[in-house]
């Protein structure tokens, strides 16, 4: 199919982009990688009045260090994330999850920021961002910038804290050093499919003890979810299959996953427990 007609703007700076969004009328869509937006427009499930294509806003691309943080430009493609040396050093969990997104051709176009703003709870990056306590740097018209923590960024199904007229500029995540182990444990029916459930786990070990744990759950609710109970149970615990299994048993606590063609809610909750055990086991180096 062919998308419905739309007005098209192709800014090259953030300021131009914000102006184009402001001038775009009632229904503006921001085209980042387009790998979700264009299919939806082809099926005419979306027919925006204006499309603001930010693929040429080069200032939004790339990964840099800022003290203890990695700063990932919203328009950095999945491919560039996977191949970035800083990500390889400090962002292994991001790399592992990004490698599972779609396929190589889609990863050449799809962007880190686009996937987060799309806020599909079945998408792989939101749970990772949440687990890492990412901070979302958002630009508004007139150059104003605000920072939103991940816990507040994902508001609902396909809904974020971005207001009309705003643009996600970059995402800050803490560097995880070599004392961290990570694992993105994804469960789907075929390689291309969205996650039925996935678990993003990062675990910091000191000797035989877990000192920090970050667990994010994909597709276990209308937004990504943090498995706080598991994290609490892990911190301070000795690294063993028993303690990990016991902690992971709490992975589904408080979740209200949906039922769809691939899984009913109770099965998703079961998977969350199994996959959390597997993710933490791997992340902890067991």
């Amino acid at each position: 199919m062919i998308p419905a007609s739309f007005a098209y703007a192709r800014p090259t700076t953030v300021d131009e982009a914000l102006q184009a969004i402001a001038a775009g009328g009632e229904d503006v869509k921001i085209l980042a990688g387009g790998q979700s937006l264009i299919p939806v427009m082809r099926l005419r499930l979306a027919a925006p009045e204006t499309v603001v294509d930010i693929t040429r806003v080069t200032e939004l691309r790339g990964v840099r260090e800022d003290g203890d943080s990695l700063v990932i430009g919203a328009m950095t493609t999945h491919h560039d994330v996977i191949t970035d040396p800083l990500i390889a050093q400090y962002g292994k969990l991001i790399a592992e999850a990004t490698e599972t997104v779609a396929d190589p051709a889609v990863r050449h176009r799809g962007t880190f920021g686009g996937a987060l703003v799309h806020a599909d709870p079945a998408g792989d990056l939101p749970a990772v961002a949440l687990a890492l306590d990412a901070e979302f740097v958002i630009a508004g018209l007139g150059g104003a910038r605000r920072t939103v923590p991940a816990t507040e960024f994902f508001v609902d199904y396909l809904t974020t804290a971005l207001a009309d007229g705003e643009l996600l500029v970059e995402v800050r995540v803490p560097k995880l050093g070599s004392d961290w182990g990570v694992r993105y444990e994804k469960f789907n029916r075929v390689a291309q499919a969205w996650s039925i459930v996935a678990v993003a786990a990062a675990v910091r070990r000191e000797g035989s003890r877990i000192t920090e744990a970050r667990i994010g759950l994909t597709n276990m609710g209308s937004t990504p979810i943090r498995a706080r109970a598991v994290e609490a149970a892990l911190v301070g615990a000795d690294v063993s299959l028993e303690t990990v299994t016991a902690a992971a048993a709490q992975a589904a606590e408080g979740t209200e996953p949906s039922s769809d063609l691939n899984a009913q809610a109770d099965y998703r909750q079961h998977l969350a427990r199994v996959l959390t055990r597997r993710a933490v086991t791997a992340a902890a180096g067991l």
Partner: peptide
């Protein structure tokens, strides 16, 4: 029409892309 099949794959500036999920512009 959902970028699943890849039949339309071309190289855009040297990288594989699905040309049904890129605008000509």
């Amino acid at each position: 029409d959902t970028s699943n099949c890849g039949a339309c794959t071309v190289h855009l500036d040297g990288e594989s892309v699905k040309s049904c999920t890129v605008l000509a512009v």
